[in-house]
Design a protein around this nucleic acid. Structure first.
Lengths: 354, 354
DNA sequence: CTGAAAGCGCTTACAG
DNA sequence: CTGAAAGCGCTTACAG
């Protein structure tokens, strides 16, 4: 284990100078810097993160919290975030809530994040009042991606869920559908609430077309492919099938495709299906959807977090904690809304003319 | 920021005693422990990981390296690993190689892991000679999951890829197929090599049935759904289509389903398709497959790593580094092979009788 | 079972 | 531009 003293000795300077040179501080002469870098290289020196963190007061680590890394959206976001963080020299501590309440407690209510990370990114994880209070007490900078609830003072990156749902529904209306069902996730699940907005968008689009939403055509389930399957099975059991289904996510839509096929209904001839996401597999499945830029949301959120003018995660904190944000002028506390885009494939078509 | 001194003062003991009590060391009287815990609770004390790591010499952190977290297998493994690590009080540092060579270099050849983690888990990441040398030089304990290459002295958890491929191919043979194609990943890609074994299993099964593998029926592409699509398109362009396709993964198989549909071929009436994995969506797609226990592999690997008798990651290292393993007697250095299981769904059937 | 003190390996004012 | 020295907040022999 070579340490900073070894490098200092070999380079013939003090440890303070080694520290400065290695971190690229400007107050080091070019010649000295060269010698230090050469010495460090020769000794294969790597700074001890623990020591550096303890002395410097920053961890260069970000906690990334997701409901389930195996779901398309969260995996895609994390992948983009990981790249951005590592490019900038930050470590990524992964927290996968996985629907386990005690994990949630541990992460969001204990001091486990405290002193461990410089900043927090919450992806698709709406918070309860107690959790909000706790996070605020931590005093850490953070950012949320597509989370149902905002954390006061934290920037937020997301899409306009209401508009995306409206676009999807309107596409079905434009094709001539009138009997349009909606399947979505469990509204009581506290891990993801975008589908509430999506339901509103669906209902708004229907109303704009002069259609009163029919509760019997609106089925809730789990926010997964299995959930989509079950929701559609139930939908079909309720009586006359709809001519089209708007699913609140592509994973739900894939479940719907399955259930329809199982019921002997053809897509799109008998029933049209559209989702939201543009999941990796949607192209392969020929699923029409409203695409959202998942990786882009992750990348952007990471940049905002690391941006010294924005997240301030990395600047040595001024005594007394980060300067309070002015919600009126700081662009970072107003949500950053990324655009979505209708992608028409093979799963949507006009209703049968009978 | 309350620190250990505050707790010590409130509890009326030394910081050493607080440290011991909080870590559950046995050399603390019950009464003292109670007082310390109460004081810590009252002050909302959380130990500083940096200080603890610097003083104690262990980081309680594991690096988990995957090619791409968005692929089903890797996401599923990581999810299981995350749960196990956090249950045991370990942090998970995520490294997503993402096919970027410089990332690979940074992780696998620099000293970035050094002093940062207590142990390394390599998932589906075979190593070149230089990387093996480097990892060995780090002297860290580690474990590999489903990696093409072994790291000397590291335990390994995986399935028998050859047998899985044999099972899949034999299923097609048993249905009466003779003209069986194989699609798989790029053999030169250095991020995942399980498909080499899978190809061998395919060829062995054919030969056992008296069939000479036909190179024109064996197409390489990317190890993704798109790759499966392209490979199948190419396969069909080569002339008379096969009556069945064995895809080296379910993601490849899904691409094949797409390409076949695009070519107007029905599954399984015209062409049967089988994969390996039992991907989340395979049930929904009716894809026959050879299921592998991904989460179980992750869980098991994490346990082996944390097991003081196995990985030794967490014990304070005896001077001179970890005791050398005896490859002859240590069960952890022989690969742990988990079972796979044929799952027949709707994508495989006997060939047409024409 | 408990405490005083050294030490983990850095970074940061403070001086110059 | 550079260095001496204090200090970050713990853990760990060493004594008792």
């Amino acid at each position: 284990m070579t340490k900073i003293d070894d490098v200092a000795r070999l380079a013939g300077v003090s440890t303070a100078t080694v520290s400065r040179a290695l971190r690229g501080l400007p107050t080091v002469s070019a010649a000295t810097r060269r010698r230090v870098l050469a010495a460090a290289e020769q000794l294969q020196y790597a700074v001890s993160p623990s020591a550096s963190r303890l002395a410097g007061g920053r961890t260069a680590t970000v906690a990334v919290v997701v409901p389930r890394i195996t779901r398309w959206f969260f995996g895609t976001v994390v992948e983009a975030v990981e790249e951005t963080l590592h490019q900038r020299g930050y470590d990524l501590l992964l927290y996968n809530l996985g629907g386990r309440e005690h994990t949630r407690q541990r992460v969001l209510r204990t001091a486990s994040l405290h002193k461990r990370v410089d900043a927090v990114m919450l992806v698709g994880t709406p918070l309860g009042p107690a959790e909000l209070t706790f996070l605020a007490a931590l005093g850490l900078p953070g950012v949320t991606v597509s989370s149902g609830s905002r954390v006061p003072g934290w920037p937020c990156v997301r899409i306009d869920d209401l508009a995306a749902a409206r676009t999807a529904t309107r596409h079905l209306l434009d094709l001539g559908h009138r009997r349009i069902a909606h399947i979505s996730g469990d509204p009581h699940e506290l891990t993801f609430t975008a589908h509430r907005e999506r339901r509103r968008g669906y209902q708004e689009a229907l109303r704009s077309a002069g259609i009163v939403p029919d509760p019997s055509l609106d089925v809730e389930s789990q926010f997964t492919t299995d959930g989509g399957n079950q929701a559609t099975v139930e939908l079909l059991a309720r009586g006359e099938p709809p001519t089209a289904i708007f699913a609140a996510s592509d994973e739900l839509a894939m479940g719907a495709l399955r259930a329809l096929r199982g019921a002997g209904l053809r897509v799109p001839q008998d029933v049209s299906v559209i989702g939201i996401d543009d999941h990796d597999l949607s192209g392969v499945l020929g699923l029409s959807t409203v695409a959202q830029p998942a990786a882009e949301q992750g990348r952007l959120a990471a940049h905002i977090l690391l941006d010294p003018l924005g997240g301030r995660a990395l600047l040595p904190l001024p005594a007394g904690g980060p300067a309070p944000r002015d919600a009126g002028t700081d662009p970072h506390v107003t949500p950053v809304i990324l655009p979505t885009r209708l992608v028409v494939r093979d799963s949507t078509a006009p209703p049968r003319a009978d």
